[in-house]
Design a protein around this nucleic acid. Structure first.
Lengths: 114, 114
DNA sequence: TGAAGGTATGTCAATTCTGACATATTATTC
DNA sequence: GAATAATATGTCAGAATTGACATACCTTCA
């Protein structure tokens, strides 16, 4: 978020921070959802890469289009388990799954030092 | 397995191969159980490293000693999801979880070429 | 504009997972 | 070897996840 925008919002009484802070998640909970979201992205990337429709992937894993949509959108009703099994069914290299477990390091914008 | 033993068993009518072959698992299914077993080992290692009893870890994650035992033994009634959440609750570094996803490379015995 | 193809969202019965309990097995210590 | 501590195994009711269906929401293209 832009620094000035952050300052302005806070001046107006808003708390500004991470999604985890906002939702009151502990560090582990935050890591857990982060990992699920990562797996969701991997799944979608792999499906698209193999040029499959959600409905085709669904058939492949014995599920339904709607559940695949939920998987890819990181819907909380989807377990990491299902994401994992689905990614494997797509033939996702395990190295990619490993990457999904690693903490996301975000490249921060370079700012003038104070 | 020893080569001669393999030959002898096969002569006696046994099929000898990987657990996956024996159980008739597909490659993905095999990878899935391998990953779960890996996570199970990580979990146990981390718990022991923190000098916790199974019952203490259970309390920490709001579960029971018996379920923790099942987790650590790779019981099929335990989802990868629970293993993951429990490992995170123990403060397991995500890099370790990443390692657990990677394929296990087994050091093979050196044999005379045919 | 609207029809078609693809994806998203809401709901729910059925399946699967989970915590809890009882009990068994395996160390460890005296 | 018996008491104690820790872990393992079996079972099951309750909770969570899942596939399926209906339907809504985009895009694209004619």
């Amino acid at each position: 978020m832009h620094k000035t925008r952050k300052a302005r919002l806070e001046a107006d009484g808003w708390k500004v921070g991470t999604a985890a802070e906002f939702l009151g998640l502990s560090a582990e909970e935050a890591a857990y959802v982060e990992i699920k979201l990562s797996l969701a992205r991997v799944l979608k990337t792999q499906r698209v890469r193999r040029k499959l429709l959600q409905s085709e992937l669904a058939k492949l894993i014995g599920s339904s289009q709607s559940r695949v949509a939920k998987m890819e959108s990181g819907d909380p009703s989807v377990s990491a388990d299902l994401l994992l099994r689905s990614a494997l069914a797509l033939g996702t290299p395990r190295a990619l799954l490993a990457r999904a477990m690693r903490a996301t390091t975000r490249r921060l914008p370079r700012v003038r030092s104070a």
